[in-house]
């Protein structure tokens, strides 16, 4: 009875369903931007223009300098911390591509009023975030479709493909030990009860600092 989805009736067949999308429909939704510049709209904006828009629409959460208010995300700083115990991963310290900044602000920010920014607004904000991260240093710097691809982010080279298979615990295949695998009795080295960051029913423990966040 179990039918294989790969071999279902009609596999490869056309069903003549749906309708052709109009160019305006595709344009309305197809706003994604790729590292190679595919998808970038016409437009431009300067660091100084970006600062004005940022102060008005973004700083309440992300802070005047992208340093973040409370637990909202940090947008700047953290360079050189990636090998630290507590790395600070920001656009400047971590993000491999500028296109992601444009794309994400355009589709999702400001939080609570997404899709409200014009293309020029987003160019200006992207320029300003670069400035906050010292990738550009000139307040008059103008980001546009034409110079976008020339900007490279400092951490681009540090991304590597998935190589989990080569880790010893997976690569060195062997039958797992079943008996007397570790000498002596188990000794507790760490208790969750000591940190006790577990949420209690009806208790709001926003103040307790967790040892690690979930991003």
């Amino acid at each position: 009875g179990e039918a294989d989805p790969k071999a279902g009736e009609g596999a490869g067949e056309q069903f003549h369903l749906g309708r052709v999308a109009t160019p305006d429909e595709v344009a309305a939704w197809d706003i994604d931007v790729r590292p190679d510049g595919l998808g970038l709209p016409e437009g431009s904006g300067t660091v100084a223009q970006g600062e004005a828009i940022f102060d008005e629409n973004c700083a309440s959460c992300h802070g005047d300098f992208g340093e973040a208010v409370g637990r909202w995300p940090v947008l700047a700083g953290g360079q050189g911390t990636l090998k630290d115990d507590r790395p600070v991963k920001t656009i400047g310290s971590y993000w491999p591509y500028l296109s992601t900044v444009y794309d994400y602000i355009h589709r999702a920010m400001p939080f609570g009023n997404a899709r409200s920014l014009s293309n020029d607004d987003v160019y200006a904000l992207t320029a300003y975030v670069l400035y906050l991260n010292d990738v550009v240093t000139d307040e008059d710097f103008e980001l546009s479709k034409s110079n976008f691809a020339s900007i490279h982010m400092p951490n681009e080279k540090n991304f590597i493909p998935d190589d989990r298979d080569s880790e010893p615990q997976y690569a060195n295949e062997s039958e797992p030990c079943m008996t007397d695998c570790i000498p002596g009795k188990a000794k507790i080295t760490m208790h969750a009860a000591v940190l006790d960051v577990t949420p209690e029913a009806n208790a709001d423990k926003k103040d307790e600092a967790p040892a690690a966040g979930i991003e």
Binding site: N57, R115, S116, L117, S118, D120
Partner: peptide, 10 residues
């Protein structure tokens, strides 16, 4: 409000 004006135009 540069951001919101842009949105209205869009």
């Amino acid at each position: 409000k540069a951001g919101l004006a842009g949105g209205a135009a869009l």
